[in-house]
Amino acid sequence: METDLIFNHGVELPEFAAFPLIDNSDGRQRLRDYYEDLIQIGRDTGAGVILDTPTWMANPDRAKAVGYAAEDLPRVTRDAVALVRSVSNEHADAAICVSVQIGPQGDGYAPGMASAKLAADYHRPQIAAAKEAGADVISAYTLGSAAEAIGISLAAQELGIPAVISFVVETDGKLADGTTLADAVTQLADTANPLAIMVNCAHPDHIANGFDGGNWEVKLAGIVANASRQSHEELDNAEVLDDGDPDELSRQLADLKGSHSGVRILGGCCGTDLRHLRKIAERVAAT
C-alpha cells in the first residue's frame, strides 16, 4: 500500500509511515477506499480478504521519527482497527479478516531483534491494543530474525490473539543476519507455532533461492511478494517505482502455491498495487 500511495497517488508518507493517515479525514478516506477496492477483488474472484491496518511502523522506535510518542501508539492501533472494522461491517457477507499489522523494531531490511524475550516485551503493547480493539489476528511482517518472530508470536499467544508471522529474505533467499529461511521457519514453528508463517517483501525469484526441498516448506502458509526484482538497497534508494509485470507475478505466485501445499495466503508488497492483487486472485481462482 505504501509504495502505491507514494508513487501512484502522490501521497507524502514521511519516513514511509502510513499510520498517520488514521489521524486525518483525507487519510482515513484513502484507506477506506483502498479496503473497499480489496473487498471488491475478493467478491469478483471468490477470494477471502485480509484487511491489514496501516500500523507497520507504529512502534516506539520508528514512530518517534514522525512525532508520535510511545503512549500515543495504543490509541493509534485501536483507531486503525475501528476504521477497518467499520468497513468490514458494511460487507458482512464477505470473507474478511481484520488484521493489525506489526513491523520490526528497526529497519525491515536489517537483522531483527536478537532476543525473543525482549521482542515479546517490546511488541506486547501493540499486540495488547490489537486484542483490546477486537482485531481477528495480528500480522507481523518483514521480520529479519527468528528471535523477534518468536517473541511476537509468544506474546500473541499470551494475550490470546492469533499471530501471522512473516520473514523477509534478501536476494539469496536468506534473512539479513544470514539465517536460512529453512532454519528461521523451523525455529519459529517448533518454538511458538503461530497461526501462519509467511515470507514477504522479496521477489518470487529471491524467495525461491531460499527453498531447498526440505519438509519445512510445508509449514509455509503465505507469500506476499515484491513485483520488483531489485535488491532491498536498490528499493530504498529508488526514485521511480519498479512495478514489475503483474501478469508474471501472478503466474509465479500461482506456481508457488501449486508447488507448496501449505500456502493459502498470497499478496503483494513493494511495487505492487491493486492491478497485481487482482491478477493474483484471478489466476489462483482459475487454477
Score class of each variant (00 low, 15 high):
residue 146 A to H: 13
residue 146 A to K: 14
residue 146 A to Y: 09
residue 149 A to D: 02
residue 150 I to Y: 10
residue 150 I to H: 13
residue 150 I to L: 07
residue 150 I to S: 08
residue 150 I to N: 14
residue 151 G to R: 10
residue 151 G to Y: 10
residue 152 I to N: 13
residue 153 S to A: 15
residue 153 S to R: 13
residue 154 L to E: 15
residue 154 L to T: 10
residue 155 A to Y: 10
residue 155 A to Q: 09
residue 156 A to L: 02
residue 157 Q to P: 00
residue 158 E to K: 13
residue 159 L to Y: 01
residue 160 G to T: 01
residue 161 I to C: 06
residue 161 I to D: 06
residue 162 P to G: 03
residue 162 P to A: 05
residue 163 A to T: 01
residue 163 A to I: 00
residue 163 A to C: 06
residue 164 V to W: 13
residue 165 I to M: 06
residue 165 I to L: 06
residue 166 S to P: 05
residue 169 V to T: 10
residue 171 T to R: 14
residue 171 T to I: 11
residue 171 T to E: 15
residue 172 D to W: 10
residue 172 D to E: 09
residue 172 D to H: 09
residue 172 D to I: 01
residue 172 D to A: 00
residue 173 G to F: 07
residue 174 K to S: 11
residue 175 L to W: 14
residue 175 L to N: 12
residue 176 A to H: 14
residue 179 T to F: 06
residue 179 T to V: 04
residue 179 T to N: 07
residue 180 T to Q: 12
residue 181 L to Q: 12
residue 182 A to Q: 15
residue 183 D to R: 14
residue 183 D to N: 14
residue 183 D to Y: 06
residue 183 D to V: 05
residue 184 A to S: 12
residue 185 V to K: 12
residue 185 V to W: 12
residue 187 Q to H: 10
residue 187 Q to V: 00
residue 187 Q to C: 03
residue 190 D to V: 04
residue 190 D to E: 15
residue 191 T to C: 01
residue 191 T to P: 02
residue 192 A to D: 07
residue 192 A to E: 09
residue 193 N to M: 11
residue 195 L to C: 02
residue 195 L to P: 01
residue 197 I to A: 03
residue 199 V to Y: 08
residue 200 N to P: 01
residue 200 N to V: 01
residue 201 C to Q: 10
residue 201 C to M: 08
residue 202 A to K: 01
residue 203 H to Y: 06
residue 204 P to F: 01
residue 205 D to L: 07
residue 205 D to N: 11
residue 205 D to I: 03
residue 205 D to T: 03
residue 206 H to G: 04
residue 207 I to Y: 14
residue 208 A to T: 12
residue 208 A to G: 00
residue 208 A to H: 10
residue 210 G to F: 11
residue 211 F to K: 06
residue 211 F to Y: 13
residue 212 D to I: 07
residue 212 D to A: 04
residue 212 D to R: 09
residue 213 G to C: 07
residue 213 G to M: 09
residue 213 G to W: 14
